[in-house]
Design a protein around this nucleic acid. Sequence first.
DNA 1: ATAACCCTTCCAGTAACTGTAAGGTCAAGA
DNA 2: TCTTGACCTTACAGTTACTGGAAGGGTTAT
Lengths: 134, 134
Amino acid sequence: MNIGTAASKSGMSAKTIRYYEDIGLIAPANRRESGYRDYSEDDVHLLQFLHRARSLGFSVKQCRELLSLYKDRNRASGDVKAIALGHVHEISEKIKELQAMKDTLETLVDKCHGDERPNCPILKDLAGSEPNNK
Amino acid sequence: MNIGTAASKSGMSAKTIRYYEDIGLIAPANRRESGYRDYSEDDVHLLQFLHRARSLGFSVKQCRELLSLYKDRNRASGDVKAIALGHVHEISEKIKELQAMKDTLETLVDKCHGDERPNCPILKDLAGSEPNNK
DNA sequence: ATAACCCTTCCAGTAACTGTAAGGTCAAGA
DNA sequence: TCTTGACCTTACAGTTACTGGAAGGGTTAT
């Protein structure tokens, strides 16, 4: 099948598939005489794997590791678990960070009357303790 | 003061300050005869504003808006509040997304025995309903 | 004077694509 | 058969917000 078909079956764009080939995340596709890339169901399956992993927030680098473990019939389940756990940790940290930002901003927004008057607590906070109306 | 001093006072790197000047987020600094950039306390204050805004997750583009509101003595508090609220919304969405990822991954990790056997539920999930041990 | 450290500009690299341009291929309808 | 439109190709630029490094000049203290 053509790249467009493989793209819609796997959920990613044709652009992305070519990109993954470019960076060596996936092997170069077979080519027809016309030069068009030609994909099998197995190829699509691999693309789906990648799509799912990326949508779960694994980086391309992590996908590379997961792929090599996926392709290795003797891989240890523990290796995969370690990658996943590491990733869970990263995600937790990111959530904490965002939550802290959100809390701060919500506090500021609450304090802001949000009318036409120029006195804004949000700007005051950003400007620090000693606002400077240059 | 030199850029290094302004950097440590404001909490950002000298590189970043030059970069902000480059992209026009801040005005070009005054120069000494030597060509060195020269910063005043007011400049540092502006840099601190930016540092705080960036650390709260505002994009550079949003910082540009905030800055122009900050410099405008007649700005409406409501404009600032709108930007902040929009940003809070973005952050909330991001948190939801990450939380969903984390939940999925934790479920998978729980199912994984994590030993030396190659049968891994995480890879199975990534591979979809019809695993293919090519 | 010499070391140590600061500053300058400029170019490249990062992550993971997306957009665009210029051109070749394919299938279906007039 | 010709044409139209959808699809494919490569290659290069742009995105975000910086960071790293090279090559070279300025400043300060000993």
